[in-house]
Design a protein around this nucleic acid. Structure first.
Length: 490
RNA sequence: CGGGGUGUAGCGCAGCCUGGUAGCGCGCUACGUUCGGGACGUAGAGGUCGUGGGUUCGAAUCCCGCCACCCCGACCA
């Protein structure tokens, strides 16, 4: 047991950190708060990117790229936007280094001070809207549907690998529309894209809803989000979509001539998901033996382990297994055939469990005689001996089943950890245990703040499917029209 | 930014209190035996003890500064 990780119940954060390291997803870097994403981890991110990118394209978006640096003056054009991000911006002040006179190394050349300082983008609304001003003149230029894949920097006080790093990777969509209704529809459409991606690809059930004013994106009129529940009972915001109204259009003077020859400001949206999704993926499904990956995002879907005593046996197994590898690949399944002599089968079994490979196929001398293989599934940790013939179909079905089972399991977990609470006492007791709390809220920021102060819980969202229900806020005693979702969050 | 903890071989740690030849386990290399749930033997390689100063005949060990990382809180995707 050379590579065991701590259990979730022992220490959830240590389990999370160790799992990421041991499964070769990522590691901390020489730079504070920044991570190195390792090949295995990046392969998962690439699969996420691919799936999302396809969905963006299907909904009519195009990719582009805008600069890493933002002139300081841009950021201050939208008042609430700058207020939201000012505290966490990295600033470039100089453009040259030189050797120190005393030979102690390189120093910043004081003569190379930038006239206008540059901000490393914490998000790109400002630089993009300053560009849109030039791109948009007429209603014929609209809608403008752009996405970019990029890195951003937010100087956070406390970082946590994948969940909150100083630099992270993401995509940010930025669209401009002729009408308010169209921009609102776009905001909702992209949130639904995220929800579909989370549920169908990540096997992660999510709640969809609006953020409260407190939790809203700096510069947005409305922020919509998908919220997921992690195994430790904490909530995680997995994606956001913002209706920007005409805020950025006005800040950057982006106007267009309508069909009626009237000049008006365009309506905007922006939406994003980040490498934080990796954290969500890990925390939602994995267990004490390691990662559990949904087949649709697993870099390796099937690992094949031959069990042999000598070269002759390996040759005999390979002769049987290599055509299977080819057949599985032809069926679009990613397969690793691990015939390396470096480790014993038992070691390999543990290793691939740690790395979350959904299906393991083992074949030894006995199987060869019987025309069978051993098929093991990572999600349930069960295994069965099955006929060699018809394996490709069987594995395809199995992968689908695993994808479904992981999703259902996460959904059941969420159902078991969602509670309707009606009194302050119930609320305070339950929030300590974790989970989503459905409680009445009087709609005021003051009460929301007070609840956060008292319980560390925030309103994760006002669900789209909120049922109208008369009640009273358990904290303020004031009337409420419906329940919102509270939780402690990452 | 507050509170706590840790920095010694690739990884995990002991040694520090009480200064005196830098150690253990895993991993790594070679060879042999093994191989159906994290194998074993033999022989090896590998460390300016985070960093800068100080005390001392002598510092991983004592003193001061700095840096980094982790955990817990306040801010955030």
């Amino acid at each position: 047991m050379a590579k065991a990780i701590p259990s979730r119940s022992e220490n959830y954060s240590e389990w999370y950190n160790e799992l990421i390291k041991k499964a070769n997803l990522a590691e901390n870097s020489a730079v504070r708060g920044c991570m190195v994403i390792k090949p295995y981890g990046f392969a998962i991110w690439e699969k996420m990117q691919r799936a999302l990118d396809d969905m963006f394209k299907e909904t009519g978006h195009e990719n582009a790229y805008f600069p890493l640096f933002i002139p300081k003056s841009f950021l201050s054009k939208e008042a609430s936007h700058v207020e939201g991000f000012a505290k966490e911006c990295a600033v470039v002040t100089h453009y040259r280094l030189k050797n120190a006179e005393d030979g102690s190394g390189v120093i910043v050349d004081p003569d190379a001070k930038l006239e206008e300082e540059l901000i490393v983008r914490p998000t790109s609304e400002t630089v993009i809207w300053s560009t849109y001003k030039n791109w948009i003149q007429s209603y014929r230029d609209l809608p403008l549907l752009i996405n970019q894949w990029a890195n951003v920097v937010r100087w956070e006080m406390r970082t946590r690998i994948f969940l909150r790093t100083t630099e992270f990777l993401w995509q940010e969509g930025h669209t401009a529309h002729a009408t308010e209704a169209e921009a609102e529809a776009e905001t909702r459409q992209m949130l639904d894209v995220y929800a579909t991606f989370a549920e169908e690809w990540m096997a992660l059930p999510v709640l969809r809803g609006h953020k409260t004013a407190n939790e809203r994106f700096a510069g947005a009129v409305d922020t919509q989000c998908i919220e997921a529940l992690m195994q430790d009972g904490k909530a995680l915001q997995a994606g956001t979509s913002h209706f920007l109204g005409q805020n950025f259009a006005k800040a950057f003077d982006v106007q267009f001539l309508s069909k009626e020859n009237k000049l008006d400001y365009v309506w905007g949206t922006s939406w994003g998901v980040s490498t934080r999704l990796m954290g969500a993926l890990i925390m939602a499904h994995s267990d004490d033996a390691g990662l559990v990956l949904p087949p649709k995002l697993a870099p390796i879907q099937v690992v094949i382990v031959p069990i042999y005593r000598n070269d002759e046996q390996l040759d005999a197994l390979s002769e049987k297994l290599k055509p299977l590898v080819a057949e599985l690949r032809k069926a679009g399944i990613s397969v690793k055939y691990d015939d390396s002599d470096a480790n014993k089968p038992g070691w390999k079994f543990a290793e691939y469990e740690l790395r979350g490979v959904p299906v393991r196929l083992a074949m030894g001398g006995r199987d060869l005689e019987n025309g069978t293989v051993e098929l093991a599934r990572r999600d349930l940790k069960t295994k069965e001996t099955v006929p060699f013939d018809g394996l490709t179909e069987r594995i395809k079905t199995l992968l689908d089943d695993i994808q479904q089972t992981i999703y259902e399991r996460a959904k059941a977990f969420r159902a078991d950890n969602t509670f309707r609470v009606d009194t302050k006492e119930e609320f305070e007791e339950q929030i300590e245990k974790g989970g989503f709390l459905l409680a009445h809220w009087d709609g005021t920021s003051e009460t929301e703040e007070a609840i956060k102060e008292a319980t560390k819980a925030t309103i994760r969202c006002i669900p789209f499917d909120q049922e109208p229900e008369a009640g009273t806020d358990p904290f303020s005693g004031k009337p409420s029209q419906g329940r919102v979702v509270f939780a402690r969050a990452y």
